[in-house]
Write a protein that binds this DNA or RNA. Structure first.
Lengths: 269, 269
DNA sequence: GTTGTACAATTGTCGGACAATGAATGGTGC
DNA sequence: GCACCATTCATTGTCCGACAATTGTACAAC
């Protein structure tokens, strides 16, 4: 951190280099991004606002349109602007799904282990179930009921079952009305999907899953927070037990769950 | 989800709209992004690999350099490439801090409430303390000790104290060796900072904080997981009590904690 | 009111160009 | 031979101008 710097250190290197670590002269396209990002974050630009055309923006910033466009790409990737109906740039709010898929990609690249995912999941899922029992609306309870019915109708069609299982937990998370926790859970859920797909057909846990889901749903409907939390805890622990009884090592990397895992879901981007 | 769609629904809307959701004809710069992203995610490009020059890449993709550069910007903002030492593009893995600051920005724009932050925080912090008690290395315990000493030496310098408080919790989270949880915690921690700054000098809770930190540190050092978890729970609850006793409403929006909150930290990006 | 058409605006893409800057190279002195 | 310096070169950041494709708009026709 070079906490102590003396100006008069005329011993080794000329003072023009070495100290004064390069002051942040950002390329123009980055300045464009920073500027507009700040405008959005400070509320001077609100979601839904339509930006001027590229030509006009370039004129105002006094840069070339190509350069401006590079800045726009940064904003676009950040989800702060989208090219709206009329192709015009409109200010937007980053979608949760964009964030979560980005996070899961990053976790994959960081070689996250199943142990880490699991440790977090076993914390979040019961907490979300508890909050769901507190906050669930009639509407979402209806969706949960539909989900459970479909799952029963599913029989032992593993693909169908897994999809509905994933959806059930997603709905519970949504019912909790807590976005930070939702964002934390989603990437983990995505990354654990391959494991879920591997477990179900080999261990034949269909019945156990349905029983657990029903208990959880009942608890949510009854606003019984501790019951919801406890059953979700059991249910999630079951999942880990299944994982381990298949001979997987929880410390093992998940690298090759790979790209399709994150790209496979993206429900309605 | 429009699960059932019949072709012959010639009743209301013409079939050319409504169904056939826009087929994915992506602009070239986006194809560049998708292509290279996939190469990274599938491991065909590994972190540290140096990409060809812009001119060469443009030639290979058979597009103009300007167009290619727009694609590069998308990758850059995603953290998948950085312009390395020699200005050459280098494949990289997204830094955690980039993710977390993006998440906190998104949460701000989504008008997240203190209630949501709190509900998540009270779950994560004890869990992290528990894991820290399990996994903390000597090295990080040393850092925690240093932090506690500095905090005591800090006296009632609120700025110094808050900074060290923030750092302490960061260190505990780091000690837990769990990146999903780390990523989940960090944005919340960032967003709650303004609240922490408001509470401390007005309620004079310096002593209570130090006592709690010492208890937590002792528990981590002794690998006493439940003790670490419990004290962290108390400590975090204290924080909320402070927040409420200042008359804030937990359901209140945090919009105007605004931009500086997220930009203020960024330790060493 | 709906349909169709002509026109204008805007974006996506292209080709070429150049200054600044870091890297590589080669010459020079010891 | 090795260290040091100047030159050359490659590459990026930026600019300019241009054009096809697409889309919004205005207006005419039914």
């Amino acid at each position: 951190m070079k906490s102590t710097l003396t100006i008069n250190s005329a011993n080794s290197t000329p003072p023009s280099k070495g100290m004064f670590g390069k002051l942040p002269v950002a390329p123009a396209y980055r300045v464009v991004f920073d500027t507009i990002e700040k405008l959005v974050m400070t509320g001077k630009l609100k979601p839904g606002d339509i930006l001027p055309t590229e030509t006009e923006l370039a004129e105002r910033f006094d840069i070339n349109r190509s350069t401006l466009r590079e800045g726009i790409r940064l904003l676009e990737q950040n989800g702060l602007v989208v090219r709206g109906a009329a192709k015009r740039l409109t200010v937007s709010v980053p979608h949760i799904v964009d964030l979560t898929s980005r996070i899961s990609n990053a976790l994959i690249l960081h070689d996250v282990t199943f142990r880490e995912l699991w440790e977090t999941y076993i914390i979040l899922e019961p907490a979300l179930a508890k909050l769901a029992a507190e906050n669930a609306t009639e509407e979402i309870i209806k969706k949960l009921e539909d989900n459970l019915e479909s799952m029963i109708a599913c029989g032992e069609d593993a693909d169908c079952f897994n999809k509905l299982d994933y959806e059930f937990h997603d709905l519970v998370a949504e019912a909790a009305c807590n976005r930070p926790m939702l964002i934390a859970r989603q990437p983990i859920s995505i990354l654990m999907m391959p494991a879920a797909h591997a477990i179900l057909p080999r261990l034949n846990t269909y019945d156990r899953v349905i029983v657990a889901h029903r208990k959880i749903l009942d608890a949510i409907r009854a606003h019984d927070q501790s019951e919801a939390s406890e059953w979700m805890h059991k249910h999630t622990t079951d999942f880990k037990r299944g994982y381990e009884s298949l001979g997987f090592d929880a410390g093992e990397h998940l690298v090759n769950s790979g790209f399709d895992a994150s790209a496979g879901i993206k429900p309605q981007a």
